[in-house]
Design a protein around this nucleic acid. Sequence first.
DNA 1: TATGGTACTAACAAAATTGTAAGTAATGGG
DNA 2: CCCATTACTTACAATTTTGTTAGTACCATA
Lengths: 127, 127
Amino acid sequence: MGRRKENSTNSLNEKNIMEACDSVYSICKIGGRWKMLILCELKDGKLRFGELRKNIPGITERMLTLQLRELEKDMLVSRIVYPEIPPRVEYELTPISRQLIPIWSVLGDWAKEHKQLVIQQLKEVAV
Amino acid sequence: MGRRKENSTNSLNEKNIMEACDSVYSICKIGGRWKMLILCELKDGKLRFGELRKNIPGITERMLTLQLRELEKDMLVSRIVYPEIPPRVEYELTPISRQLIPIWSVLGDWAKEHKQLVIQQLKEVAV
DNA sequence: TATGGTACTAACAAAATTGTAAGTAATGGG
DNA sequence: CCCATTACTTACAATTTTGTTAGTACCATA
């Protein structure tokens, strides 16, 4: 993983900020590069490791594994291993991560507005 | 700032993901280490640079400047310079970032639930 | 002339995240 | 025995973010 240093200023700052501000805490939990995308993929049901990889262009097996591990640790996905060969592993959302689904759509709406604004701004600058 | 490379896999991935998924886009905009905290501070009105620094323990002048510059570029704060000596600069939320305020509280509520869950989990493991 | 206050910048260093490339294990089928 | 399949690991390197320290500009005031 590239282990984090327990007592770096960086780590301590993050910890303090997460304790000080709940919305920062939430954003930290879903803030990894690919996490949101993974969660969105799982919105409609279980998927296997390989399916996730195929559905998320650009992600490597390593990053997929890392992000899934963190999501699992944070109880945002659950991992179901079938004792078969070749291996089969499925991932699915947990109750707590399902509670986030409506928030995603609100964030999505905000994004659309923001993008509009950026476009407007570009036009104004051009004129 | 430590300039980003335009064409690194890293940059391109981020760009693609933001285009592919609107909620990722939103989270990117508010995902910097101190951004959320800064925005929260500004929730109740304008603040000067020095006030922000005092109100946010642990932040350095450099980080405060960097994060404010990005927020400004993304139109999430506006910067008001008074031509005085010593200088006076005030920051305030913009209409588009004010639209985020209700989302913060929802994220905050989710954080509280998640923290509860983590505590429960710790207890179960201990037993 | 020296000092203080304010909002920054610049050069550098450390830390953290992300990406690349090459493996591993287990077993059924040819 | 060799290969294919699947879900991973491992070692390393590049990139990005964050932190440290020491400046800068400006003018009023002592």
